[in-house]
Amino acid sequence: MHMSPDEIIFWQLGFIKLNATIVYTWGLMLLLSVSSIWITRKLSGEIERSRWQNLLEIIVTAITQQIEDVGLHHPKKYIGFLGTLFLFVAIASLCTILPGYEAPTGSLSTTAALALCVFVAVPLFGIQEQGLAGYLKSYLSPTIIMLPFNLISEVSRTLALAVRLFGNMMSGAMIMGILLAITPFVFPVVMTALGLLTGMVQAYIFFILATVYIAAATRTGKAQPLQSQH
């Protein structure tokens, strides 16, 4: 039994190896890209539109709305990063219904990579919004004494992001493996359904936390409400 899909290695050449995490990630990338290209190849700007376009529009507008609700006033600027986080984690969880599939998010390497991306993206967006000085000053708020705590918070929340997602996804897969060994009928199906729900919740949590971090980093000196302006 594998703790992580990293352990399933298809090909290796020294340091370079092609494990299941990378392969399934490529698979997900291919699925998302091809379906996006296929659906958006004949987009309609009119009132009438296809069902798939309607589905994508619902997803995109829902993400945009969530970003705005958290307090980012220009959601289109952040949707590329935050939306992809949500979609990748959500699709990776949804695909667990496919037999033989290992969710890449069940690998700590993947979740660490995503958390690292958030870890880098937050200061980038913050600096872009407030400037370097303004962003750095945010570490000193409300007082300089808080600087170490802010720095610890910055690292720890990134670690928490990675471990939380990895723990949830890995535990789901582990429970499924154990249940399949103990009660091979019915119960694993229920657990799989529960795992889908857990995966969606985790995707939402990962996405919303990243959004909150970026929102906190991009907020200027004046406090801004988190509520969206409908």
Binding site: I22, S109, A113
Partner: peptide, 14 residues
């Protein structure tokens, strides 16, 4: 649990 090559690859993939 963490394979740093995989981390890099996944970052790039992402």
């Amino acid at each position: 649990l963490v394979d740093w090559f995989t981390v890099g690859a996944q970052t790039l993939n992402f």
